[in-house]
Amino acid sequence: MANGVRHTGYDITIELTHADLGHPGPEWSGLLKEITTPIQHRDRELLQCLQHHETGYCPAEDEGRSPWMTIRRRTVSGVTTLVAAHLPVRGKSTPEESDRHKAFKERIERAAHRHGLNVEQEVRTGDGKVRTDVLVTGSAEQIGWEAQYSPVTAPTVLRRSAAAAEREIQPLWVTNDDRSALIDRTSWVRVDDWSWREILNRPAMLVRGGVRHLQDWKCMPSSERPCPVNVSSCGNLRAVWDLPGLCLPPRPATAVDDLVALNAEGQYVPMKIPSQYNPRSSTRGSPKPTGLGGAP
C-alpha cells in the first residue's frame, strides 16, 4: 500500500506518514484539508498514484482501478493514519462521450468510402465474441477501429485486442486522452479533444500521438543527429523510430482520414518499439514504415 501520492496541481510528492506531509511551513497549512476533501468536491485527478507517476504504470490498473487516488483516515487502536486508495475507473460513458464516439465512427466510415474500402459499423465476428466499432477492409489488413472516448481499464484493452488479433482483425484504438490506459498496450493513436460537431465537420483531423517514422543515418561528424553512444561520431549506421516533429527534416502529422486507407493497405503497421533508455519498457505505435502504437 502506498504511503505517498503525487499532487498534480503543485507537482509535489505528499508523504502520508509524515505529520507535515513532507512539506513544513505555514504556506502548506491547508494541504491536509485539500487532499482529504471528498472526491465529489475536488478535481478527480488531483492526486496521482506515486508508482504510476514515476514509472507510468501501477499493477492496480490491471485490476480495474485508475491511477487517481483518494485519501482516507483509518483509526486502529486509537491511532489515526492517512491511507491512499485508488479510485475506480469511471465506467459509464457520459452523453458527450457517447456523441463523440458515434461521430468518430461516422467519420471513419466516410473516409473508408472515399478511399473505396469496404467498411461496416458495429460488426460481430462469426462466433459472436468480438464486436468492432468500425471494421475497414483493405488489400493488406482488416482494421478494427475502436473509438475510446470514455475511461477503459488495461485488462479490457489487452483482452479485446488479443481477441480481435486471434480472428485476424488488427485492432486500432483511438483516444483523446494522453493518459489513457490503452496507450502503449495495443495499437493506438491519439487525436485532439474535439466535440462531436468538430469530429464530423472539421476538414482535417490530425493524429497527435502514436505514429512514428523510421529514421536512418550514418553517424558522421557532419550528421545532424548526435551520436547516441559516443560524444563524437562513431561512424556506424544508425536507425531510430521517431515522432514526426523530431524527424530530420520534420514530417507532417498524419491525417486520420488518410490513416484509414494507409493502415488497411499495409503502409502503416503496428510495432512494439523497445525503449533505448529502459530495456523493460517499450512504446507501441504506428510506424510507416511508419509504425502505429504496436501489436497486441
Rank of each mutant, 00 (worst) to 15 (best):
P67V: 01
I273W: 00
M69E: 03
E168Y: 15
V157A: 04
V174I: 11
K33M: 10
S29P: 00
S195L: 08
A112V: 00
R167N: 06
K129E: 11
M69N: 04
D43H: 11
P59T: 01
A204E: 12
P250T: 06
P289I: 15
H41P: 00
G116H: 09
D127W: 12
T254E: 14
L246H: 12
A164G: 01
E166R: 11
G64R: 06
G144T: 05
T13C: 09
W217L: 02
R185P: 04
P252Q: 13
P226S: 08
K102S: 14
W188F: 13
V191T: 12
D258F: 09
T8A: 08
W188A: 06
G64N: 06
L262V: 01
D11F: 09
P67F: 01
W68Y: 10
V240M: 12
Q267C: 06
R197D: 12
P59L: 08
T36V: 15
R6D: 01
H23S: 09
T55W: 09
D99E: 14
E15I: 07
L206C: 07
Y149I: 13
H101Q: 01
H23G: 05
R90A: 14
N236G: 14
L182I: 02
P249V: 03
P24W: 09
W217K: 06
N230I: 00
A181Q: 10
L117E: 00
V83K: 12
E54A: 05
Q170D: 05
G78W: 00
R159P: 00
W68Q: 02
I108W: 06
G78Y: 04
E63N: 03
S29F: 11
L82W: 06
D99W: 12
W68D: 01
S223I: 05
H52Y: 15
T175L: 00
R185N: 03
I108P: 07
V189K: 06
H113Q: 13
A111L: 07
D258P: 03
H53N: 13
V134C: 08
V76H: 13
H86L: 01
R90C: 10
P38C: 13
E122G: 11
S150K: 02
T55V: 11
E54Y: 05
K102W: 13
S233Q: 01
